[in-house]
Amino acid sequence: MLHYLEEELEKLKEKIIKMGSLVEEQIDNSFKALFEGDLDLAQKVISRDDEVDKFDVKIDKHCQRIFALTQPVAFDLRLIMSSLMINSDLERMGDISVNIAERVKVLLGQGELLRKMIVDDMSVKVKKIVKMSIDCFVNGDAELAKSIINFDEEIDRLDRKIFDLLTEEMRSNSDLIVPCCHILALVRNIERLSDHATNIAEDVIFLIDAKMVKHSKDPENLKPKE
């Protein structure tokens, strides 16, 4: 029984890691398509979402099976609960990469405006936080997870800065209102990626430290361990 449980948990972890790299690739490709104006790559991202969705269902079913057959407790229970939550966040991140890919067409030829609005800077930071969130799950690193939650605030500040840049641009040049509105919506999506990465970090803290930090404003929870 024990051997079975350990094997199943290991398989589940592997699946989450695979789902994580699949979604990370989708995000990277959607940004690449956006900044290089590559419609083929954007289409590839859109088509591949089906693969992400199928993986999502596969992981949910696996968790259900472990719950039903092994009645997990303590760390094992938290691993399955956090896998379910992380899986759901990854699936949403996959959807967002599709949203980004879908916007490539309307923003074709706006590479300069995107750079002026520092969207490329934001994308670099978001890719980093997404990678960190997957890494902290893979390595069971609660300290890295705590640093992600603080990093998300930096991305939120960047988001507000881009908002100001966009409104200023629209005020000074009304011809740019339409592309700026698209960028506004795009940036909202990119910011959501960071929020999902933060959720994953919170789930890893739950997994490792057995602390529920989501919706918690208590800074004590995010202090590094002595």
Partner: peptide, 17 residues
């Protein structure tokens, strides 16, 4: 005890290890 045991021995026992 069954969600966040304090001792490793408890965790190992209740999870059948």
């Amino acid at each position: 005890m069954f969600t966040k045991p304090e001792k490793e021995e408890t965790q190992n026992y209740i999870s059948g290890r």
